[in-house]
Each structure stands twice: as structure tokens, then as C-alpha cells.
Design a protein around this nucleic acid. Structure first.
Length: 280
DNA sequence: ACGCGTGCCTGTTGGC
DNA sequence: TGCCAACAGGCACGCG
């Protein structure tokens, strides 16, 4: 499931393949993949891709369109099972292909960009930067965890909700999903059940450090691949081999040997060590 | 304004 | 062995 490190990896691996290529055709194969606020994808045709970036879990492709009638951004939200894959020009769509972008490089060489999404939760949004504030999700997106200071992070943790739920709320902090929430809390030795506003300054700083460490370590290993995630070349990440909490329910804690507890918190599976991550 | 429950989706897993 | 319910889970939406 693509969270910040996986989306960052896709953005990085995609860039060398698609930079400088122009979009010559778009084939949307499932209407619900198009975000309601999107401009028609056909208006991307004729524009060239000039860059890739990431905001939270959102992947952004920048285009050279200057006319206000044409999108200069293609935003992809991969959600659970979305993939952006660069393939050669003869690749054919399959059952779970939701959109195909035909590309052409300056020499006329063709290739294709596939948006595959088994569960079809993912979205594509063609837009312009000036329209992004109309999108509630974008406007309310919290700070980037890798750019956050301890003081800034403390500002985020206002409510009484369990800290785990706060970390998953994209309005609080952007890019963290179930995997990295559990991993970060384990590394910081903080219980997922602690009210967000009950963390001391030391704990807040420790948690931010853990979040940044986990995200950086995962990015360095090209993300985590469980089930569906692949980068733009179809390669898996390796960080799943370093999980200390996610998926470890019922197994001994890597730190103290206590059996890891598995609970539901806000509807999400949550794993933690009851000894290392005490509630009080 | 906030928190909670449900729907969206489909492939995989586990229990009987 | 086969069937089916539960599960995976981010986010929109509607409710109280």
C-alpha cells in the first residue's frame, strides 16, 4: 500500500523514463478513476512531462502546458493498490489497467505509462496549481513529516484522539499510513492508544525522530512491498523485511520478546508491544 | 466542529 | 476439498 516512501520511490523511478516525453494519447478505461474535480484527461494531449514530485501520498507529474485551459499537473492518488508503470509502446492494457498514457520522446520513440489499480480506489486528477485550493483534501493536507520540526509537530498534536489515529489523519500530518504509523510508534516506544495531546515534549520529539528515521530508511530501501506495491519499473521495495511492528501481531517483540498485541483502533489493525509501548 | 459508521473495490486468506 | 465470510485499508460521505 503506497504511503510516503513508496510514492517518493515511484516519483524518483518514474522521472528518468518520462521526463521530456510528450503525451500523444490518453485512454481512460474506468470512469471512476477520474477525480470529480479533474479537467478532461484528453486536454493533456500535446503537453510534455517536465518533472515529478510528491506531496503526502500524492504523486504529481508536472507538464509544460501554459494555456489556462490545459492542465499543467497530473495528480495521482494510488490509494491501496494503484501503480504507475512505464512500459514499452507495445504493452497492452489488462483487467486492472485504469488508464493508459501514450508517450513519445523528442526522437519520436514511443512508450506508455500505465495506471493499474486492482481495487480501483485510486484517482487521477488533471488540473492546474491555481485550482488545487478548491480541492478540500489538498487544502487541508498537513505538513510534510520530513520537513517538520519538533515544535511544529507539537502544534499538530492538539486533540484527545489516540496518537495512532492522529498520525493517520492526513490533515494532521501528510503521507503516513497504517504501516509507518505502527512502525514509528514502536520505534518511539509510545503506545498507539495514548491521547495525542498527552505526549510530553520529549516524547513528541522522539516520535518525530522515529517517523523521520522510519520514512528515510524506507525510502533508502525503495519502500515496502506487501501485496501490490511496485515502483515505476515494476520492482519491489525491501523495507518490509525491516518491519518491527506491522504484521508482527502474535510474534515476539524484536526488542523485549513480549508477544506483540494486535488490536483494532479506529477500524485499523494496530500492532504494538504492550511492554515497550506502555499506555501510561 | 467533531467523531463515528459505512461504502467504495477485488483478491487473498482462514475457518468450517 | 469447496465454499463463503472476513480481511486488507485510505478516504469521501452522511449522520448524530
Amino acid at each position: 500500500m503506497p504511503e510516503l516512501p513508496e510514492v517518493e520511490t515511484v516519483a524518483r523511478t518514474l522521472l528518468p523514463h518520462i521526463r521530456g516525453r510528450s503525451i500523444v494519447a490518453v485512454q481512460l478505461l474506468r470512469d471512476s478513476t477520474l477525480h470529480p474535480l479533474s479537467m478532461p484527461l484528453t486536454r493533456l494531449v500535446g503537453s510534455s512531462i517536465i518533472g515529478t514530485s510528491r506531496r503526502g501520498k500524492l504523486l504529481l507529474l508536472q507538464l509544460d502546458a501554459t494555456s489556462s485551459a490545459r492542465p499543467s499537473l497530473l495528480v495521482a492518488h494510488l490509494r491501496m493498490t494503484g501503480r504507475l508503470l512505464h512500459k514499452d509502446s507495445c504493452a497492452a492494457p489488462h483487467k486492472h489497467t485504469r488508464c493508459v498514457f501514450a508517450l513519445k520522446d523528442p526522437d519520436g520513440e514511443g512508450s506508455k505509462l500505465f495506471f493499474d489499480d486492482t481495487r480501483a480506489f485510486g484517482k487521477l486528477l488533471a488540473t492546474r496549481p491555481e485550482f488545487l485550493p478548491q480541492w478540500d483534501f489538498w487544502r487541508n493536507l498537513g505538513p510534510e513529516p520530513l520537513e517538520l520540526t519538533p515544535a511544529g509537530f507539537a502544534e499538530c498534536l492538539k486533540g484527545t484522539r489516540p496518537i495512532k489515529q492522529a498520525l493517520l489523519d492526513q490533515r494532521v500530518i501528510a503521507g503516513i499510513g497504517n504501516i509507518y504509523a505502527d512502525e514509528s510508534l514502536f520505534r518511539a516506544r509510545i503506545s498507539p492508544l495514548r491521547p495525542a495531546n498527552s505526549l510530553s515534549a520529549a516524547e513528541t520529539a522522539r516520535l518525530l525522530q522515529a517517523i523521520q528515521d522510519v520514512l528515510r530508511l524506507s525510502i533508502a530501501q525503495c519502500g515496502s512491498s506487501i501485496r501490490d506495491y511496485q515502483d515505476a519499473d515494476g520492482n519491489a521495495g525491501a523495507f518490509q523485511n525491516s518491519f518491527q511492528a506491522y504484521g508482527q501481531g502474535g510474534k515476539p517483540c524484536k526488542n523485549c520478546g513480549t508477544i506483540m498485541e494486535k488490536i483494532k483502533l479506529g477500524g485499523r489493525t494496530t500492532v504494538f508491544c504492550p511492554r515497550c509501548q506502555k499506555s501510561r
